[in-house]
């Protein structure tokens, strides 16, 4: 696969491809933002793609035997294997094409994983994949819990969130005391040759479409981390999926950016916030819309807000990189 599928940047929401390559009849929850991520992802990539998906909602709820929502070829891979699945698919195709065993043509190789598969179990395979030279994209759809298995806390769950493994109780009302892993920057800084790492959100469809296309055309392995509001695990009326996605960014909790060849470019509201053109909304506006935070006390809200403030006011790269130079430098 010397060449790559031609995927120009899309100018304007009305030019997003009309064709559905992830169609109806999957079994996800009402208002499943991860299903939307799947749909936008493959819309952007087009029909000359192979998709491998690791275990999680987008496998179990999405692809239930004897029927499928996929128009493009799709295959399951194990929970911790999105990186290996992409690598194996790309390696097989490259060998077959180089040896003339199949037609030499551009094919998008895409693997996806949830936060459990990517941020927890699959992290080492994901890292290994980003050190190869295969053209492939890995999309992490992050609904902030093991939502499919009954909503258990993951390394990507927010501090204090209610889950079946972190229920607020009489003696401990905050069971999950871990702060959400900062995954995209970890992968960007940890893999200097990886040319493209980005964050996205289905609520910003055009932004996501163009990030998918850049990830698939820049060359080499690339990674996109998408925040996917989950009505089930977060406990909210499904019609608010889109709004909560926006809120997570407007409160500064989730930051939209892409890192192209090491250059950080903030996008959308995050850019406006960083440039001081837009004030961050109080995190409370986001937290109080979700049942998973309903047990928060005033102190909890204060703690949460302060953590977010610090990430914008003290981090070297505000909202992105949690380091700062030694003061006397």
């Amino acid at each position: 696969m010397t060449t790559m599928v031609e995927l120009p940047q899309v100018k304007g929401v009305k030019n997003i491809p009309i064709q559905e390559l992830f169609t109806s009849g999957h079994r996800t929850c009402q208002g499943c933002e991860s299903a939307l991520s799947m749909r936008l992802m493959i819309k952007a990539a087009g029909p000359r793609s192979i998709v491998v998906g690791s275990t999680g909602c987008m496998y179990v709820a999405n692809t239930t035997y004897y029927s499928t929502p996929w128009v493009v070829p799709w295959m399951h891979t194990q929970l911790g294997s999105s990186g290996s699945a992409a690598t194996g698919t790309a390696a097989g195709l490259r060998a077959l094409m180089r040896k003339g065993k199949i037609k030499d043509e551009p094919i998008n190789v895409i693997a996806f994983c949830g936060d459990g598969g990517g941020v927890d179990m699959g992290l080492s395979a994901l890292s290994a994949a980003l050190t190869t030279d295969y053209n492939m994209m890995i999309l992490l759809y992050d609904n902030e819990s093991y939502a499919n298995t009954d909503i258990q806390v993951s390394g990507s769950s927010p501090w204090g969130a209610n889950s079946t493994f972190s229920p607020p109780g009489k003696s401990k009302h905050i069971m999950n005391r871990r702060w959400k892993k900062n995954t995209a920057p970890m992968l960007a800084t940890g893999h200097p040759d990886c040319r493209y790492v980005a964050t996205s959100c289905g609520s910003y469809g055009l932004d996501m479409t163009n990030k998918i296309r850049r990830a698939l055309t820049i060359g080499g392995p690339t990674f996109i981390h998408s925040i996917d509001p989950c009505p089930k695990g977060w406990d909210y009326d499904p019609k608010y999926s889109h709004e909560l996605g926006m809120l997570s960014i407007e409160t500064g909790l989730w930051v939209l950016y892409e890192i192209i060849d090491g250059e950080l470019i903030l996008n959308g509201p995050s850019r406006a916030i960083a440039k001081g053109m837009k004030k961050r909304r109080p995190v409370r506006e986001y937290l109080e819309r979700q049942g998973r935070f309903a047990h928060f006390t005033e102190e909890d809200h204060k703690y949460f807000q302060e953590k977010v403030d610090r990430s914008w006011e003290e981090w070297y790269l505000p909202g992105v990189l949690p380091v700062h130079p030694q003061l006397d430098d």
Binding site: E6, P17, I18, E20, T23, G46, S67
Partner: peptide, 21 residues
């Protein structure tokens, strides 16, 4: 269908629907 553009033409568009679920 051109994956590069929103090509509607005059016919509109209807995805292939899952008839089983």
């Amino acid at each position: 269908f051109d994956p590069h553009h929103n090509q509607l033409g005059g016919a509109g568009y209807e995805p292939d629907r899952n008839q089983l679920f």
